[in-house]
Design a protein around this nucleic acid. Structure first.
Lengths: 185, 185, 185, 185
DNA sequence: CATGAATGAGTGTTCATTCAT
DNA sequence: CATGAATGAACACTCATTCAT
């Protein structure tokens, strides 16, 4: 049931935007009373958090599935970031929800383990990609955040400036990732 | 009065976030009836747009004031982007409002001239920074958007991952800008 | 509760006119919060439609009850129209609401079955009243609408020209109906 | 100016319905401040009354212009009623306003001289049409009101049952008028 | 003669949430 | 385990009207 609710909520978010997700609307969709939502979620906020976590899970498994066979560290990193960007682009509304939910939380750790997993996996990929150079962990962390920032920046650009065609976008993404990877040396 | 309203709205946004900006609340703050808002703004949306435009004006004059005396193109570009980032960081909530408002508009041109001015000024700076290389306008446009994306990405990172200290952030920004400028050659 | 609301609404309409029927006012009367109205009606408009339908139901049962024992077709028709007129006169405000609601609808069929039932019953009475003459269905339809028009015309006259005494009115009604019935031959 | 206001109001009523006529909207159209309306009209209601009176004036002059050369009393009466019906049909929204305004008034005489003129002219036509029969004034009055009722009834039918084509309507009107004229003998 | 500035009361509507059952 | 019934607070917005200037 928890899952059913989450999936229904997801559908609403995907189809009508996260601003349109109201508990009544959701209760209607799952064909249960609205009260039942409070049996499975403390709050609307709790539901949003779960939704966001689900998003990160999706993202993580997406990455796992597609990258587990890529052994070259740099290619692997590139693939991961590309998947991240594609996720943000395709799941526009869910991605926005993930961002917004992240913002409103005081501490990510307890509520957002999946996000940390995601960050970690990026971090590891970067670490492997510059194994020989023996970088400090601060350097690695910075690069990791930078990688994420680039994708997020491009994604949010996409939401505002609709005149950017898909080709331009993916080219910009490629360039940016290449440049980042270069900077690891 | 138009300005008074805008300033009061701005204060609410800054202090309590743009989600807390309701017309009632605003009317209360300016100690007028709510009706008066409709004498100066067609809509709540119109007010938001004006607020966002105001934000871009601020940003533009900020840039003007601080960069007009920097003649070296690359330094100039760096300064501009740094100011942009600082703006996004310091005016967190206003910046978010600007982003959200931008997303909901169909065409930016008529309602957001100030945003276009901002983009243009970045574009020009980039153009000057690689004058000798005779880059295509597409190349320039991509780099321009990329520059904006980087700052936006770092800004949104900032909003989510509060464990990043100021030093780290500005160092990441510096690195990223340098790397971008490098890529212009 | 649906019925309770409808009845309270009816009372307001009857006593203060359908222009005075606001959801807040209604909620006040039933001593419930305004929100509860939306549990039973999608809209204010939906409530109005239900109110109008209720009016037609009343009218239909009125007709049923009083005419089922009248077998002479012409007398029957006359009785029906007289009841219609009396309804319009006595339930002045409800009648007006029924008219206005009817005007604002695009297609009567789905939302106003009761109105169609009413029209149908008039039509049948007319059909029976000139069975022998084998009239075309167009002729019958015209006469049916004409019958309704006459009553409506007299009713609206009543609303404007208050100097008409009851006797005059019912005499005019009688004459008009007789004349209509005559024209069926 | 009085006239200018009235004409602007008329335009709004005609184009957007009498429910859309608000003083602000009107002030906007005439490009004056809303306050100025109160210099020429005591109330919104006063303005509506004037509007309605204007409607009756239009109707009266319409009748004058087109019927002054018809000498046969019955033809004349028929022409008058036809014009009335056409007016109600073509000036749908103005006609509705005239009806509604009439309803809300306690006594028509002081505020609606034009309406009385209209009724009078119908009355006279009827009187002439049955001069020889020496009818009582009550009889004449009844027939007069009946004539008006018929047209009003058909007009309001028109507003609700949109499935009636123009031909059917004018045929029904003709029949009804003929029948009424017949009944004068 | 006209206005700008302002308002109070009202509109329909939506929301997350609660609680007795 | 689930519901039906209900709510209070808020929302954006519109209206006719007033009054000092």
């Amino acid at each position: 049931m928890h899952k059913d609710i989450l999936h229904a909520a997801l559908r609403i978010v995907r189809e009508e935007g996260h601003r349109s997700l109201s508990l009544r609307r959701l209760a209607n969709d799952i064909e249960f009373s609205a009260t039942v939502l409070y049996l499975y979620f403390k709050n609307k906020e709790a539901l949003l958090v779960d939704l966001a976590r689900f998003g990160y899970q999706q993202l993580n498994t997406n990455i796992d599935r597609n990258c587990h066979s890529i052994f070259d560290p740099k290619n692997r990193l590139k693939a991961m970031l590309t998947i991240y960007w594609r996720f943000a682009t395709r799941e526009k509304e869910l991605y926005l929800l993930m961002q917004e939910t992240g913002m409103h939380l005081n501490s990510l750790a307890p509520l957002f383990p999946e996000m940390l997993i995601f960050i970690n996996s990026i971090n590891q990929a970067i670490t492997k990609a510059c194994e020989k150079e023996k970088r400090t962990s601060v350097f690695l962390k910075h690069k990791c955040y930078m990688a994420i920032a680039i994708v997020q920046g491009l994604a949010s650009l996409n939401l505002i400036h609709k005149d950017l065609d898909a080709r331009s976008q993916s080219q910009m993404l490629d360039d940016a990732i290449d440049s980042l990877i270069d900077s690891l040396k």
